[in-house]
C-alpha cells in the first residue's frame, strides 16, 4: 500500500496487483465481522442450556439471530444448485422473501423491528444528557465556566429560536459565532487533535510494519 502511493504499481507488480490485495482484504475482513456473532450465540446458548438467570430472554436473542440470518442466507432463485433443491420443495414465488433485497424477511425485520429499536436506544440518550446537564454541568472553575458558556452559546446559535434571540443583540452575532468559535477556536483545537492523532496513527502503522508492535497478535 505504501509502495503503491509512491510508484506506478502496475509497472512494478504487473497489472491489478493492488486490486487483488484490496479485494482480498475486503473478503477476509468480512469473515472477521461474523466472528463476534458466533461468540454471542455461543454465550447465550450456553446460558439457555444451563437455565441461568434470564434464560428465556437469552433464548429470544438466539432465536432472533437465526430468524434474521437464515432467511437472508437462503437462495432467492433456481439459478444455483441450492436454489434448485429449495424450490423443488416450496414455490419459486417465495424466493423474494429470502435474501437481503427489498421486501425480503430480512429487510422487513430490519425496517420494522431492528431499526426502530436501535433508533430508540440512542434517542434515550437525550433524556440522560438533559439530566446530566441539570446535575453535573457546573461552573466549578474558570475553565469549566468557559466550557459552559460556550456550550450555552452554541446551543442557542444552532436552533432557529435561539438564533432569533441572538439577533436581538446584533444581526451579525450568529455569524460571529460561526466565524470565531466554530471556524476559529474549534478549528484550531480540532486541527491540533487531528495532527496529534495522525502522528500517533502513523507511528503505530510504522511500528506494525517494522514488527515492533505485535500486541494485535497477542504478543507483547
Amino acid at each position: 500500500m505504501v509502495i503503491s502511493f509512491f510508484f506506478d504499481n502496475e509497472q512494478i507488480f504487473g497489472q491489478k496487483a493492488e486490486e487483488f490485495v484490496l479485494q482480498w482484504v475486503t473478503i477476509v475482513g468480512g469473515f472477521a465481522l461474523v466472528l463476534g456473532v458466533f461468540s454471542i450465540v455461543r454465550v447465550n446458548a450456553r446460558a439457555v442450556a444451563m437455565k441461568s438467570r434470564d434464560w428465556p430472554f437469552k433464548l429470544m436473542t438466539v432465536v432472533s439471530v437465526f430468524a434474521m440470518a437464515v432467511p437472508a442466507m437462503l437462495p432467492v432463485s433456481k439459478s444455483s444448485n441450492g436454489g434448485k433443491v429449495l424450490f423443488s420443495i416450496i414455490p419459486e414465488s417465495w424466493g423474494s422473501l429470502f435474501g437481503t433485497g427489498p421486501n425480503s424477511i430480512y429487510d422487513w425485520l430490519f425496517n420494522y423491528l431492528d431499526s426502530p429499536m436501535m433508533e430508540t436506544m440512542f434517542a434515550m440518550l437525550a433524556f440522560f444528557i438533559a439530566s446530566a446537564a441539570y446535575r453535573a454541568f457546573r461552573a466549578r472553575s474558570a475553565d469549566a465556566t468557559l466550557l459552559l458558556l460556550t456550550a450555552l452559546l452554541v446551543m442557542l446559535w444552532r436552533v432557529p429560536m435561539g438564533e432569533a434571540f441572538l439577533r436581538l443583540f446584533g444581526d451579525s452575532v450568529p455569524d460571529y459565532i460561526n466565524t470565531f468559535i466554530m471556524n476559529g477556536f474549534n478549528v484550531a483545537v480540532q486541527r491540533g487533535i487531528i495532527i496529534g492523532a495522525a502522528l500517533g496513527a502513523a507511528s503505530m502503522s510504522l511500528r506494525i510494519m517494522l514488527g515492533i508492535e505485535r500486541t494485535y497478535m497477542g504478543k507483547g
Partner: peptide, 9 residues
C-alpha cells in the same frame, strides 16, 4: 439478536 443476525445475513 436481530442486530447480530443482520451481520450474518
Amino acid at each position: 439478536g436481530l442486530s447480530a443476525g443482520y451481520y450474518v445475513g
